[in-house]
Design a protein around this nucleic acid. Structure first.
Lengths: 254, 254
DNA sequence: TCATCAAACTGGTATTACCAAAGGCGCGGC
DNA sequence: GCCGCGCCTTTGGTAATACCAGTTTGATGA
């Protein structure tokens, strides 16, 4: 038989060892997404444990969202381990900014129609703050982040806010992305303030279409800055691909 | 007694109901961090379930890091629910769908210009699959999810894909959201297939604006379904607020 | 007073049984 | 020959019980 008994010398409880063994089987590709795991009784035989133990292990996987149990049918693979653990592992700075361009553009549009006066005041204050901190690169980044998050919060939609916040934080996941952003930031502080001001003006007018356009223009400029800051040969390909994407998209939506 | 039997009319399995009941007890502050839960045998008596079921529920909590089980001693509260685990804890089904409407609309538009023929073929196949599974509500949901994720993947942007996937999975975070969606799903299977087909057609034409419109129409219909399925007075307020938001936004963007 | 040890308590695992849902297979009708 | 209905097998869901292995507690005796 392929599997046999589990190691057994671990301090873990049996169900934990079994869950780990199953996890490895999932990672090995033996059970692709959508595949059905062997029946509980079969697993019990294979691993030489009792059925309650098998159930405990499967429930552990189920709680983690790895498998989905259908009564009378079986346990099916829902997603592979490691797919969600590191959310944006390979996400590049370009992809990230492209996603922000699309999503935050819509967030700005929604915010323009939903925000309160208090939201507006907070956003306006943050535009000023980023100008004040123009010496400290760290403070600038923080103020920039606060500005974008304030707009997201003004949508009065927690899911939107949470998504925008996460996209911003994903930058920290990739060292290259963070470095690239910092590099691009050194070049141009002033344009950012101007773009933010334009965005604020659109929000003041409560014009969703103008707000969307302003946010897209802003992040489009950020994307340009990233492309400009890219010199390394390692990123040249990604840069080229990104430019091609933008052109294709721009042409089709024109 | 405070606890008594568990509701019992849910579609959840017993261990899930019990886990939820225990979760509420944790949230209520009855068991602060460090406190010991009643013994498995006691819980079994209190909730009128068997000990294996109690164990399954405790393991579900343990996997989520909420309790820590010490052999021979008991299960101890490790941290309270909602402290760190669920990013969008209070996100409602309405907020979630609204966010998806905005973001997935843009994802569809981008996908229309970036997807490969293979992407298109996969998406087309998933439209058929959801029609085939129209009897099995569980299979329908899975096919629906796969369809939306395939479109996100066709953007060739990992950040976009990841965001869409996360928004979908956030549904599972909130029991009410999942329940509401399931309820709304029972009413209308056919429209979903038609809307997906319309979306596919827009993608085939590689028309980003049409794709965005189709996706927005689809999720707008989903949102309508959710609003329709909302009867409980507890949700009435949220429903009203959501409708007001949509009207305000529609008026401003018209 | 303190060390020791046994009994009670607690979780860990196995076994068995029975129920309900799902799915496959064959029979029978059309 | 094809389609549909129903039985029968398979699968997960739950319960009941027993026994083992750690932990805790407290009673007992030095």
């Amino acid at each position: 038989m392929a599997t046999g008994k589990i190691a057994g010398k671990s301090n873990d409880r049996l169900y934990q060892e079994l869950a780990r063994a199953l996890l490895e089987e999932l990672a090995s590709g033996r059970y692709p997404v959508g595949a059905r795991l062997p029946a509980e009784r079969d697993l019990a035989l294979r691993y030489d444990v009792s059925r309650p133990t098998v159930r405990e292990a499967i429930i552990a996987l189920e709680v983690q969202g790895l498998v989905e149990v259908r009564i009378g049918s079986g346990a099916y693979v829902r997603r592979l381990p490691g797919e969600e653990d590191s959310p944006g592992f390979n996400v590049t700075a370009f992809e990230l900014t492209e996603a922000r361009l699309l999503f935050e553009g819509e967030a700005a549009a929604l915010a323009a129609t939903q925000m309160t006066e208090a939201d507006l005041a907070e956003i306006a204050a943050l535009v000023d703050r980023i100008a004040e901190e123009n010496q400290d690169p760290n403070g600038t980044e923080q103020a920039d982040r606060a500005f974008h998050l304030a707009i997201a919060r003004a949508t009065r939609n927690l899911a939107v806010y949470n998504t925008v916040e996460r996209l911003w934080d994903l930058r920290a996941t990739s060292p290259e992305a963070a470095l690239l952003h910092e590099k691009a930031r050194h070049a141009n502080i002033r344009p950012v303030v101007e773009e933010h001001s334009a965005l604020l003006q659109a929000l003041r007018a409560r014009d969703p279409n103008a707000a969307r356009a302003a946010m897209r223009a802003h992040l489009s400029a950020v994307l340009d800055g990233l492309l400009f800051a890219t010199e390394e040969r390692a990123l040249a390909e990604a840069r080229k691909a990104t430019q091609a994407k933008r052109e294709r998209y721009a042409r089709a939506t024109a």
